[in-house]
Design a protein around this nucleic acid. Sequence first.
DNA 1: TCTGAGTACCTTGCGATACAAGGTATTAAT
DNA 2: ATTAATACCTTGTATCGCAAGGTACTCAGA
Lengths: 98, 98
Amino acid sequence: MRKGMLEYCIMLLLRHQSCYANDIIQRLQEAEMIVMEGTLYPLLSRLKRDGLLGYEWRESTQGPPRKYYVLTKDGQEALDQLDASWEEILRTVNILKN
Amino acid sequence: MRKGMLEYCIMLLLRHQSCYANDIIQRLQEAEMIVMEGTLYPLLSRLKRDGLLGYEWRESTQGPPRKYYVLTKDGQEALDQLDASWEEILRTVNILKN
DNA sequence: TCTGAGTACCTTGCGATACAAGGTATTAAT
DNA sequence: ATTAATACCTTGTATCGCAAGGTACTCAGA
């Protein structure tokens, strides 16, 4: 059922901080949402391609450099839109639950 | 984003009343969720095939007879499970929203 | 020095979901 | 008999998420 929620959750994560893939996987896991690498990387690439995310390389103390993703201005607007969609889904489910 | 929500919404609808396809489309529309016929019919067939829904034919005063769908016992249990999943998604989003 | 373990990024193939478009069948009215 | 309305269903396409597999960089230890 969480289909389609992933994009929203990832953008929520990036609203206040930049993250690289493993950060995202771990933080989502703490919020009880499991994401696979094979799901995450293509999704990040797509959001980058669509101009909603940008990234910058940063060195790591142990291991290869990391891609830190950040929300672009377009991304913030898209996120606002997703917030609205989420509210609508909440309303829908609440109506149907009566 | 509402991908995957449809099954849940339809089963919520059927929790307290039986419906045929156009009922479902109209009621979901009232709850601000748009469903296409080409989406709904295969979904209903699948839920029937999986034993979560049953149906009975009923005559209509104007037009061909209608398939009224109802939740089976298995369907009720599956719906309870979906309720739990929904609660989990609510928790996840709330955590990520801070 | 080179080899293996750990980390990080990415791709390919598959199944499932939803939509758009089109098709079949029954009923009632003209 | 034909048409309009209603109701059910199928096919083709796009997207999403997962499983599995692959590449590349870094560092520690043999």
